[in-house]
Amino acid sequence: MSARFTLHTPGHSAYTDTLMMYALAHAANGQLKQVSGKGLFYALEIEGLELEELASRISGIFRRNVERLNTEFTRLLSEKDLKKAESVLEDVELLTKYLGELVEPGHAIREGRAGKGESFKLPLMPTAGKYYRVDLTVSKKYQAREYAVCSFCSALAMLGLALGSQALRRGATFLVSTIKFSGEVDGDSILNLSDYFLNLSDAGRELLEASKACLDKIPGRLIGYLLLGGLDDRLISAMEASNASWNVLTTRFEVVRVVQVRGYYSVELDPAIATLADLIKMDEKLKSNYREKFNTLCKELLRACSVEALERLFDFMSTRNVEKIYEFARVAYTDLRRVRASFSASELIEILTQLCTGA
């Protein structure tokens, strides 16, 4: 294999392939030039790297992230699952052969509900439940037909869970989110996103920690917006300037004896990204810190469990409809006063209102 090639994720699902994309991107590192999101799969352009070296990197990266998977995703994945995946990826020769198959798109065609292999775990593909829907006017029951994949797809998606997602947990409830895109994004931006998942910024950590207090009440789509709020200014600006559209995928899992999917959400981020990018530009122009105040407001609302106010706030961020600001202000004032919060949102609201008019 030449030192310049394109790898395609298999095409199992948007969620699964996004995880696998982050795993491959992280391993390619500085040799990753560009990633193209093409709906259900991604194409990664890699230069200056041999497939054998990429396979060796993947194997080593998995070993270094077993502890993270054990800690962050405990109960979603068993120790047996992790040991099997680690063993699979240790065979660099077979892993290299698998990567060679990804040079051409369509690997998933040979797998799925009609294929052979191991069952895909729900945390790696939330739509992979074992019951396959049939026409109940013909058949009297649902058929048990699990989604089967090769062991390399399973292991690579597991690595992507560590490198390209963020998990929130409270009791038996887990919310797992990842950021997907369609279009073209430069390699550095993808690596920065992966770094964010691995090493949350202070702002991101504080937002997500604050959300745990009312995790059972927060709609899945709000978690996606909060994840976006934790990204640094440079990454927000790069996402806004890219030739791509962005979504966050969030799955709500509940673990009671077995892993169950309780919700799956896809939220378009482009409008909110554009509003945050404009807020960043305003900060640069005015030498202000409204972006920081925005995150502080979100944290105060989370501590007050003011879910309705947060929904109104992000409705505004996504629409720039000034009426949404008034709705937000009414609810937020009541809830912040109830918990005697010291933060005043009036100045920030005034600035956000200016974004509606372009002032």
Rank of each mutant, 00 (worst) to 15 (best):
R133E: 10
G39W: 00
S13E: 14
A14V: 13
Q143H: 08
E53H: 06
L54G: 03
G117A: 02
E146A: 14
R205A: 15
D202M: 07
N321W: 04
K83V: 03
D91G: 11
N295G: 01
D202Y: 11
V185W: 03
F120K: 12
A128L: 02
K84E: 08
E111M: 07
Y42H: 12
E79L: 14
F343D: 00
N70I: 01
Y98S: 08
L208P: 03
L313R: 06
Y196C: 00
Q260G: 02
S2L: 13
A241D: 12
G183V: 02
R110A: 15
E254H: 09
G11T: 02
M20W: 10
V66N: 04
N243D: 13
T137H: 14
F181W: 14
G204Q: 08
F328P: 00
T296K: 13
L276A: 07
V261D: 10
I109N: 07
Q260W: 05
F5N: 01
A274C: 06
L77N: 07
H26W: 14
E111W: 02
L227M: 11
L122V: 02
G106Y: 01
V248R: 02
G60V: 00
M158W: 03
R68G: 00
F316V: 00
A244S: 11
T319F: 01
T137L: 14
L95R: 12
